[in-house]
């Protein structure tokens, strides 16, 4: 019975959108933890290398988290793209005359675009940092992060990170508070509180990641201090 109901749920637009919202919010929590880890890099190579190395000790846990993250992101992308395609078909012919006022924010109208950029970023990020951290067999993580081949010693990589973090901010500027509404708690006290807290996720978290790329890739790389 419940299984049947869940099947109805997951094939409905509201159900799919709730999956997009839940997975999006869960990913936001992961980013918070990820950023807390990354900030250690400001305290120097030794601390950073030590931190990443100690993560090795809880490898099974990390692997489990990775599998969950893949599922979360997979659910997010699959459902958001399915919905976007359905809604594109629902429009048919678009409005032919241009409106001279924007009735909806730019960030809300560009979720598919910003999401796609994030996907490209994630592909690059995982195939460089994540992959090399796993396979290099060395523990000089700080060196890898700042390396010229794929780290912030490479201005192209730095630029990609800087742009991607602005895009992430954009995605979450609309996404975070939208998810609160999607989950049906938009009108509650909790929902209003979470909407207030959304600035942490759309501004502070992306700005935190941005600062690291900026510090190592621009300030230190070009010897500005």
């Amino acid at each position: 019975m419940l299984l049947n109901q869940l099947k109805v749920f997951i094939s409905s637009t509201i159900g799919k959108k709730m999956v997009v919202a839940t997975t999006g919010l869960l990913f936001c929590l992961f980013l918070l933890a990820h950023l807390a880890n990354n900030f250690v890099i400001y305290t120097g190579a030794e601390n950073f290398n030590f931190l990443v190395k100690s993560l090795e000790k809880i490898k099974p846990l990390i692997r489990l988290a990775e599998v969950m993250l893949v599922l979360i992101l997979g659910g997010h992308i699959y459902n958001s793209i399915t919905l976007a395609l359905k809604s594109k078909k629902a429009k048919g012919i678009a409005n032919q005359s241009k409106i001279d006022v924007a009735n909806a924010s730019l960030s809300s109208r560009t979720m598919v675009f910003t999401g796609s950029i994030l996907f490209i970023f994630l592909t690059v990020h995982l195939s460089t940092f994540w992959y090399t951290f796993q396979t290099s067999g060395r523990h000089d993580y700080y060196f890898m992060v700042t390396s010229e081949s794929f780290g912030f010693g490479n201005i192209l990589i730095t630029s990609l990170y800087l742009v991607a973090m602005i895009i992430l901010g954009f995605h979450l500027r609309h996404g975070f508070q939208s998810a609160i509404k999607t989950l049906g708690i938009g009108n509650t006290a909790l929902g209003k509180l979470l909407s207030l807290l959304s600035v942490i996720f759309w501004l502070f978290v992306p700005a935190g990641f941005f600062s690291i790329a900026f510090w190592f890739g621009i300030v230190k790389h070009f010897g500005l201090v």
Partner: peptide, 30 residues
């Protein structure tokens, strides 16, 4: 199509129907 919460509907509704109703619908659906 689905709701992206852009708010264009609420902005152009001649009867000022609030988007809060969409959140209510989602809650009731769940």
């Amino acid at each position: 199509g689905h709701c992206t919460n852009t708010g264009a509907c609420e902005a152009t509704c001649p009867k000022d129907i609030s988007m809060d109703n969409i959140s209510t619908m989602n809650k009731e659906y769940l």
